[in-house]
Design a protein around this nucleic acid. Structure first.
Lengths: 308, 308
DNA sequence: GAAAAATCACGCGTTTTCGCATGCGCTGAT
DNA sequence: ATCAGCGCATGCGAAAACGCGTGATTTTTC
């Protein structure tokens, strides 16, 4: 009895107090965020706890991992090393979570998908509606953003993106080819038609310097009147009749109060892809969603390309 | 204020209750040991805690990891998968601990070395004595065994072994070449000398079938009288005059009451090596120890080889 | 075939951990 | 120059985790 206790203590001591995998996780987040508060938010605990766990980790490793500065916690060389290894541990954990998620054959529980706002509003909402109708047990979260969420991290299980570059560890298939075209309000469109020589006002993105080169070649009397950093705002301006905007065909068609103008013929644009992590390729819920997504886009493929 | 709290909750929920790296460690040990009690002993906690942590892990992953059988906990396929990934996490942790240990330049604190019992008794004890004299701050643990301890695991920091095969990730250098020779008690030795034609009784290891082939070629009148699975026992039998034993030169010389007999000339045997993990090659304490070890063996190299 | 050992589940009292509140130093803006 | 904002340390009460003891069942041993 007594001997057993002693053995236990010896064992733990010899192998150096291994009570600290969670502490390593904390160290990793603290290195990433640089402050107790930031790490605490990421971990969902109070910063007091972060402070304590880090102290415990330093105690366990027998070496300081951070310098306490006024501006926050700065990792020492040892701290950075700890974070590097903790990152490997995190990768292993994420791989495990993916594997377990892939093994799950139930059509219930959480599912996170991400897609561009405008594509959700115009088309995906119908797919989502039908999907939930068919599988009411799925707790669907939709992250409407153009940002590239990290599918490794499982910030999302499935992404619908407008891009040509899937990225590592991701697999996917093309849902549709699409074109861009020029759109304007009916008023502005008829004005253009009636006065072909008038100045054409473009509504562009912040990174546009000049009107589209191909358009300038046809008619040099054009300018960029306003620049936007947001697609919705740009659409609103076009609807208000402020000028001509170049946008994906499906966007212009879905937005009310816009009509296509023949200033520049439809042009090939980035394809629409559905992407998921390789590990989750055959997960039941993802497959079920894709099985509705793909036929939908096949049936509506004309929405995305210009009539020739 | 309120919004922040909500965000925290959402965040944690979305990423699936990541409070469980320590729980994964528990799952790994439970898969390894197969019972709550075994895992608990390895972790230094009570088996009640193991049970709770495993339940928490299953809750977190949303899938059973073990089947509760009468005989213990049997991992499910998901449980085995979790253990595989947890093993990777463990490797990362061990690599980190090695790296931090290597970075430690202080000549204080724990140091674990392992070596064969007989080599410690005859020679290493002097090196160890001098080392501790010079570096009294080092808490030295000596694991006297012929088993191959896991240097990855840091069951030992430094190993002195009689072997030709260092193994992966290990680096080392040769301390000495050595010979084996035949030894017997003085009584038995003089009996052999006086009656050259008599039967020679060998004391061998369990895996010996016959006396050494080279000896048989010189004189067929020999047999293996007893077989041992323990070197100390074998030496004792030789000291008691029960026969002739083949052993490393340094062992026969160090054991009292034995003398070399010319039945078979000294033969090359496995070299003596000092080994450590590649990551720990330049750790201060290890280097300090090696810096005393190597000159010692250089000065005593004649102890290990036969006079020609 | 019965005793002994080992296994897990459950409930209770204790220890540990956690989160909140307060206090202090620094930075940057008004 | 003063004052809000951010960041960390510390103390205290609440909550969670832990270890122990008990009981039921099964496997092993004599």
């Amino acid at each position: 009895m007594r001997k057993r206790v002693i053995f236990r203590v010896d064992h733990a001591k010899m192998h150096g107090m291994r009570e600290d995998w969670d502490n390593l996780r904390t160290v990793l987040q603290l290195v990433r965020h640089g402050s107790l508060a930031g790490a605490a938010k990421a971990l969902g605990v109070s910063y007091t706890t972060v402070s304590r766990r880090v102290a415990a980790a330093e105690e366990s490793f027998g070496t300081p991992l951070f310098e306490r500065l006024q501006a926050g916690y700065a990792p020492t060389e040892a701290g950075r090393s700890a974070a590097r290894h903790a990152e490997q541990m995190e990768q292993a954990e994420l791989a495990l979570r993916r594997e377990l998620a892939a093994r799950d054959t139930a059509l219930t529980g959480p599912l996170v998908i991400t897609a561009p706002q405008l594509l959700i509003a115009s088309h995906l909402c119908h797919v989502i509606d039908a999907f939930l109708e068919k599988h009411p047990g799925v707790e669907l979260t939709i992250r409407a953003t153009n940002e590239l969420l990290d599918l490794n991290n499982r910030e999302a299980d499935l992404a619908i993106r407008i891009s040509d570059t899937p990225g590592d560890d991701l697999v996917g298939r093309r849902l549709a080819r699409q074109h861009t075209a020029s759109f304007a309000s009916p008023d502005y469109a008829s004005k253009l038609q009636d006065n072909p020589g008038d100045m054409i006002d473009w509504l562009g993105f912040t990174f546009w310097q000049d009107p589209p080169k191909a358009a300038m070649a046809l008619n040099p009397n054009q300018r960029v009147r306003m620049r936007f950093d947001d697609m919705s705002a740009l659409i609103g301006a076009a609807q208000a009749g402020l000028g001509v905007a170049r946008m994906p065909m499906f966007v212009g068609r879905a937005a009310g109060g816009l009509m296509q103008v023949p200033i520049l013929p439809p042009q090939q644009y980035h394809d629409i892809w559905v992407l998921s992590h390789r590990d989750l390729k055959d997960a039941a819920k993802l497959r079920a969603f894709k099985d509705m997504l793909v036929p939908y886009f096949a049936a509506h493929k004309d929405d995305f390309v210009g009539v020739s």
